[in-house]
Design a protein around this nucleic acid. Sequence first.
RNA 1: GGGCGAUUAGCUCAGUUGGUUAGAGCACCUGACUUACAUUCAGGGGGUCGAGGGUUCAACUCCUUCAUCGCCCACCA
Length: 879
Amino acid sequence: MTELSKRFNFKEVDEKWSNHWVDKGLFHTKPHKDKKPYTIVIPPPNVTGILHMGHALNDTLQDIIIRYKRMNGYEALWMPGTDHAGIATQNVVEKQLAKEGQKRQDLGRDAFVERLWDWKQQYGDTIIHQLKKLGSSCDWSRTRFTMDDDYSHAVKDVFIKLYAKGLIYRGQYIINWCPRCQTALSDEEVEHEDLPGNLYHIKYALKEDPNKFLVVATTRPETMLGDTAVAVNPKDERYKDFIGKNLILPLVNREIPIIEDDFVNPEFGTGAVKVTPAHDPNDFDIGKRHDLPFINILNPDATLNKEAGADYEGMDRFEAREVIISTLKEAKLLTKVEQHTHAVGHCYRCHTVIEPYISKQWFVKMKPLAGPARDAVTTGAIKFYPDRWTKVYLNWMDNIRDWCISRQIWWGHRIPVWYDDQENIYVAYNEEEALAQARDKRGEAVKLRQDPDVLDTWFSSWLWPFATLGWPNKSEDLDYFYPTASLFTASEIIFFWVARMVMAGIEFIGEIPFKDVYIHGTVRDTEGRKMSKSLGNAIDPLEIINEYGADALRFSLIMNSGQDLFVSKEKFEVGRNFANKIWNATRLILMNTSEIDSNFDITKKEHIQTMELSHQWIISKFYTTLQKVNQSIESYRYSEAETLMYEFFWSNFCDWYLEIIKNKWDDKDTQNVTYKILELSLQMMHPFMPFVTEEIWQHIKPEAGEICTSLWPEIQSQLIDESKEEQMSYVIDMITAVRNMRAQWNISPKLKTKCYFDASGNTTFNIQEHEQSLLRLAQLETLEEDIKITQRKNIAITLVHGIKIAIDLGEVVDVAKEKARMIKEREGLIKLKDNLAKRLDNKSFTDKAPKEVVKKEKGRLEALEQKTEELQKVIASLH
RNA sequence: GGGCGAUUAGCUCAGUUGGUUAGAGCACCUGACUUACAUUCAGGGGGUCGAGGGUUCAACUCCUUCAUCGCCCACCA
């Protein structure tokens, strides 16, 4: 027998097994005729990513179900990979360059992209290594990257198909512009944050009568340099006479018309709106409606350009704001400054304030894609867990807007579009093809230039569930593993990714990409803040793995994973302690089981029935637990599953069963049953704590291969016996009652006491059968039957399930104290009894409540009555 | 402005169709180094389930109003 260390040494074990599993290819999958597939695609972490708690949670959830399904005989594929994460990754490398005093422009596009690939080569797999440390049982041989050649081909294919269908178009619109990243962003990539700001009231003089003014209100005064009108509501009596007249725009001295538009809300501000069509989405619409000029006053970096006038050219937008305010103030044109909180959009990558900005971009028409994606959820083909996210999803689908997919960065999928000198568009897989198209169209060879932009990262991610399986090529993999079974992600990603994957799956494959969407909570610190590097409140999962072990990290995270989780370092102790408990229980068992019968079959009821209660009980208890664990896992209630296992293993198995059988190791049944229950428990716990269970498995069942490929225990319902569980609960209650009395009387644990009982009140339970257990676990010297128990002196006595049980207190007894304790107990019982009696007296209760409830309550009342009566007798007899 | 979620022990949370005396972990208190484990064991204290109203024989659970906190969505400058 191998000697086991006193503590579970996760440091050696974790790495050993994660390497072993991968090296042996145990998670490798392939289409399999006789097995059902179960597929999950990982939400591909960014190549820039390092494992944070959000990943740890997300990936543990997936690993649990994938290990569970694998053990249940499925061909369980967990598809791993990483996302090129356009803006994020480019930012990282640009920062690196900045340290060298360079800009991407200094390198030029090709060299810069090459540098990004170098970076990816060097650091891109960091998170993959970290996922392995966590125990993630992905099929690593399939690891994909969203910029792999074949994946890129899929992206182009999709672009070309959608363009052909008229679902992709190019146009000049107002979009969200990040001045730092210098690219367009989709609406989803803008994070709104309510910020305190000011509403500035500014006087615009009437051209026709310079002494008359119209006052407009704005939060962004610098945009006035691009104003091309002022709008009022046509129904607004105050401004009726102004409509059609002209104003002189202060600072700029441009003549602008006063127009009417229903959009204007007379209640807000002054009821007169300055219209800046090039720098505000609403004004853009107004500008289109009224055919106004669009004056762009910003450079891409959000400094003002020459349209803004010589005084402001080159100034930063926020500096310009200050200057303009003070200039207006001096000119007495600023009539009022109101405090005003408003939502300011920020870039989700760098948190810079975004600018609404006019530019020519590529868009996906979303309405035609949204319809079927909506239906997939309303018909129940796709289900959200928890269900409330359904509404969030549908709401987004119903209010969907077109998706801006072009990005002015260099890292990503280059838009497969070429232009000729006449701005004709050629959409093609490559330049050669585009040239051919151009030749056909123009009748001569022409020079083309490719669109410089790349596609939004999510334009490749939305293909993940099938592009990873070889699409657009037909493949056995795709046939077999698609659609996937379940998707695990955080709520932030529903719009970015989940919703769009549904669209893409239906559009390109004709089939939904997954059936269940499990939305898990966000990991926060104890103050409820999101964990983030910049806040410095992040707990590093790798640090936890180092200090507590991967099993501890996994177990503790899941334990806390009801809704959002608030974690602190100490919370990981639960998992560490539990792993250690499993380890030490194994040590005990291995030390005492030398003669395991290899033919022992725990499923044989006839054999089990001949055993003593404790064995039957633990077997029944195990299968009861297993049954519940199965249900919990199947319904995505993982923390519940863990609670069940924890309770079973620690409380039932270790604290009771192992203690009870401790002096019976020479019994064969004891050895066989204990060993087998350990084995089964390890399997049940394996998806949750893969490392400790695998390590132990190798000590107790080395001939059986790896536990991760073992078959999940089948429920043996013939061995589930409630009566055994009840009988055992009597033993437990009895021991507890005696321990209780001992504690109350401060009896030293070293001192064994005499114990007496009177079982005349319970004929179904034979206490003497359990004498050994009671003697040992309750520290008793003797256990004697005594029908005149209440006449004894110097005892403490209590009633358990109709059985009077008393311990001898020797000379120390204080009868008054004991009596007082029992009176107090009796009072409590009487209160309960009275309440119950009242309820049963109530005719409407007995009439309306279900019969079984009434019956149950009657039974309870009888038991309570009996107990109070007995207690009364005991009290009366105490002297 | 709309929607969603939360509010249960000092802390973090369970509580699945309404039905025993509302549970767990941590923390706390008492006791024990009992040769599997002090990352342990035994015992204990602690909750009018956010507030008010309602439905019901019965409410932590259903309805309603309110309060506090959090999240998401929204073009009112």
